Amino acid sequence: MSEPQFLTTPEGRRIAYRLTPGQGPTVVFLGGFRSDMEGSKAQHLQAWAEREGRAFLRFDYSGHGASSGAFLDGAIGDWFEDARAALSLAPGPLLLVGSSMGGWISLLLAKALPERIAGLVGIAAAPDFTEDSMWTAFDADQRAALLRDGQVAQPSDYSDDPYIITRRLIEEGRDRLVLREPLPLPFPVRLLQGTADTDVPPAVALRLLDHATGGDIRLTLVKGADHRFSSPDCLALIETTVTDLLAGMR
């Protein structure tokens, strides 16, 4: 595979991306926390886009993958700014596909750029997770350590190395919450969620479904699917969902 291209954001961060030309609206994949654009869902959509002649954009947030910066220096607002800058690479309407944290970033983009968004697919979308999943789950000692030391280590199901959660990630995230105020989504929205997801449980998807307003918002629960949502059946469902949404945009 050829080397990625790079974009320098208005904030001076160097963002790696891959843009596939084709028929619009451009499908934009937004990855999750500590993920990159070479993951199975992004790769599957890349192959689909090439096969179908569809415009497709994937990229790495700063501190992720091939982009510049250190992961521990980043926060939700930085990664939102990276995503907003990446969207400048794709003119015209956009279909956002956000996985986990990418679902939160997609919702922030929808609020900031509603005129550009033609549709949104959330895959185990995790809005407000820094507050509702991290800070809320910390005990008194962990909260004290975070405030005192600026970071705290958490075990990870995906790596032998623990997650390092920074004070800035938590505190900056409070300026980006989307479930505490009205969340209009005036375009087709499809939420895909596994019932066996222990990182972002189905209750989060149900809360988002209840909170958001819009005329065409649907939630699909997949029995037994976990947070990765990357089994062959789950990947096929993502592809079908994107294809069906695009078909309705003609």
Rank of each mutant, 00 (worst) to 15 (best):
10 P>I: 14
10 P>L: 13
15 I>L: 15
16 A>P: 07
16 A>V: 10
17 Y>C: 03
25 P>R: 08
27 V>Y: 01
30 L>M: 14
31 G>K: 05
32 G>A: 00
41 K>D: 03
43 Q>M: 13
49 A>K: 01
51 R>K: 14
56 F>L: 12
58 R>S: 11
64 H>Y: 08
68 S>R: 04
69 G>P: 01
69 G>M: 08
74 G>P: 04
76 I>Q: 02
77 G>Q: 05
90 A>P: 01
92 G>T: 05
93 P>M: 07
95 L>N: 04
98 G>V: 00
100 S>N: 05
104 W>S: 01
116 R>L: 12
117 I>W: 06
125 A>P: 01
127 P>H: 11
130 T>K: 04
130 T>C: 09
136 T>E: 15
145 A>K: 14
145 A>N: 03
146 L>D: 08
147 L>G: 06
149 D>T: 04
153 A>D: 14
155 P>T: 09
155 P>W: 05
159 S>I: 06
162 P>E: 08
164 I>R: 14
166 T>G: 08
169 L>F: 15
170 I>K: 09
170 I>V: 15
173 G>D: 01
173 G>M: 01
173 G>I: 00
174 R>H: 10
176 R>L: 10
180 R>S: 13
188 P>R: 11
191 L>D: 02
193 Q>C: 11
195 T>E: 00
206 L>S: 05
210 D>A: 15
218 R>Q: 15
221 L>Y: 05
224 G>N: 05
227 H>P: 10
227 H>M: 07
230 S>H: 09
236 A>M: 02
239 E>R: 08
242 V>W: 04
244 D>M: 01
245 L>A: 07
247 A>K: 14
